[in-house]
Nucleic acid binder design. Structure first.
Lengths: 347, 347
DNA sequence: CGACAATATCGTAGCGCTACGAAACCGGCT
DNA sequence: AGCCGGTTTCGTAGCGCTACGATATTGTCG
């Protein structure tokens, strides 16, 4: 065991992984040909392609993408930055993006900001270090530093999950203000006079806050009431929903309709109503946001707004692919995926 | 606009990002010093550190990690491969891993296998192309090719979320068989005679299947009954829970206790019971798995097994960091995070 | 005040691959 | 046969950085 340190040390610099040159040698072709075969197999004659692929298999060659990326001054990494991957919306979108890009040979470098712009800037800086093929950001609010970094880099940028503001480059999403307004209109159309919006983490979650804005906007002409919003600083959980319901009931006697910033919050409201014997929708109409997995099967099934996180992911992937494949300025770099108000029995 | 193509083309190779050499020149030091400053700021004298950091700020220098990784033959990327990021368990773990590693300057390259070993192998191959600092895999079942790839690479490997089988390198998790057995024992201890296990996606989700095995193992001596498992091929959703409950009721008349492969499934069971007027726990005791966000607030609160996905993530990060920081063979490369049976009112 | 150790700085040879232009090859046609 | 356009193959100069050993600087002590 005496020589082990020395041999370890040597291994670091020498005798490491199989290289493209070794493949070329074994296949009896030039390194260029191997490289070409890997990048565009069709550009190589059948005979050589066969020899090369055999050599790769025999040697167990794994290309070094860092070397490739360095030489090509670009990588097949796509950096996706979301507030939190624990949030089912973003989990779905990230999952879809990664599936769509993965099949095209791109890899997803994940970051989450925990709703902090400073954190986002750090993540963007780190992402840029990999010369990514594209950067995908959540929302339209970014720090000055983030914008500067991005502007200096000419990496394609896609902002997702929000529309209705100036865009860095490309954007896919919908207007949250409209979604909030739609919720309010729906409750009003159902004949509810005394309605409110409850939301979690509104101080950090800009999108939920904008839904609240839209809700309020629709409300004002109706009844002149303002400030019919109740906030919970913590994350959007069922517990928060129960809490928020109780505070809403207390603050707004005779409450007839409630819009929730998130289906998980709405679920908590449902549970608490069951406990308190409040009938839904007879006593209280409840509308959520998200159309999560359980929303159609709870009691009663939840009326909610479906944002189509998977469609957003698909469109993001499409834009990324298009901007990599050449076409510099896509004709429509802003895609409105809209949302759907799904009417179920809770309203 | 005539010359735009040419200028674009030129930009690719020239006039690109600021390099370390330019920083060195501006700061009046050698490139080595700048590099050293970036990697170990303390190893540089205060005077030069100041000059370098100023030059970096003035130039807006962003290091090229591909060049760095190539030269160092390693990167600060950690590849994390999970079955699905939509699954709340893995979302939580990935989130924790990324938070813990992010603060140490590592980045997470995400992959999801959709429960396919072939897909996993492709992801491992892709990950290896980046000479990652470590690879984190889910579970202990991997294809032969995956094992070969990993063996040939001497990258540290952590397998998570499962224990009780041969390990590639390091592992963090718990025994799912034990968890399933604990669920059975709990139902039996509650005096339930006629119990069953319902699970979604058992043919792909090895861990849920092993929980079912453990459940059965505990059951057999009790009553001699076998095959008290009902499977649903689709993913674990509340809908699947409702479905499974109905099939269980039909197949096992007089059913008194039900263990679910997932809290989401259990939630579906709860909902369906509400609809059918089945009282929980009087008529039917229900135990879940996961202790998800809603499990404590539903009606009745759900008895469940908490796997501590965040602790798993933390321990994974710790192992990764330790294996990077030197200490070659950690004294205990297998960490049992165990699980907790949380008794609530559903049993 | 000189010798020596400890610390700080520097010079440079690659890391493995791709882009690019040149060279070789291959029929088909005059 | 000779020429030509298109296709396939090849040679090689870096991409930007780090490791490593060499050199310069500083501090300590007899």
């Amino acid at each position: 065991m005496t020589g082990s340190t020395a041999s370890l040390r040597r291994r670091r610099r020498k005798a490491q992984r199989v290289t493209l040159n070794e493949v070329a040698e074994l296949a009896g072709v030039s390194p260029s040909t191997v490289s070409l075969y890997i990048r565009k197999p069709d550009a190589v004659s059948e005979d050589r392609a066969h020899r090369v692929s055999e050599a790769i298999a025999k040697l167990g060659y794994v290309p070094n993408l860092m070397a490739g990326g360095l030489a090509a001054a670009s990588s097949r990494i796509v950096s996706v930055i979301v507030p939190s991957i624990r949030n089912a919306f973003f989990a779905e979108t990230v999952s879809t993006i990664q599936a769509a890009l993965g099949s095209e040979g791109f890899q997803v470098l994940l970051g989450h900001t925990e709703y902090s712009e400073a954190q986002e800037e750090a993540l963007v800086r780190a992402a840029l270090s990999w010369a990514p093929a594209a950067i995908v950001l959540t929302g339209l609010s970014h720090s000055h530093g983030t914008r500067a970094l991005l502007a200096a880099s000419d990496v394609p940028v896609v902002e997702m999950w929000e529309l209705g503001g100036p865009t860095i480059d490309m954007a896919v999403g919908f207007s949250h203000e409209e979604a909030g307004a739609a919720a309010a209109r729906h409750l009003i159309a159902r004949g509810r006079k005394n309605i409110a919006y409850v939301g979690a983490r509104l101080h950090e979650d800009h999108r939920a806050a904008r839904r609240a804005d839209g809700f309020l906007r629709e409300l004002a002409p109706e009844s002149g009431q303002a400030g019919r919003i109740i906030r919970h600083p913590g994350p959007a959980t069922a517990d928060a929903g129960a809490l928020l319901l109780n505070r809403a009931l207390q603050q707004f006697p005779g409450l007839q309709g409630l819009a929730c910033s998130n289906d998980l919050v709405a679920l908590g409201v449902l549970f608490e109503c069951q406990r308190r014997g409040i009938r839904i929708p007879e006593d209280l109409a409840v509308i959520g946001f998200g159309d999560l997995g359980f929303s159609a099967s709870c009691n009663p099934p939840l009326t909610t707004i479906r944002p189509s996180g998977d469609v957003i992911g698909l469109e993001v992937a499409r834009l990324v692919l298009a901007s990599v494949k050449g076409k510099p300025e896509a004709p429509e770099p802003v895609i409105d995926t809209s949302f759907l108000l799904v009417e179920r029995r809770s309203t």
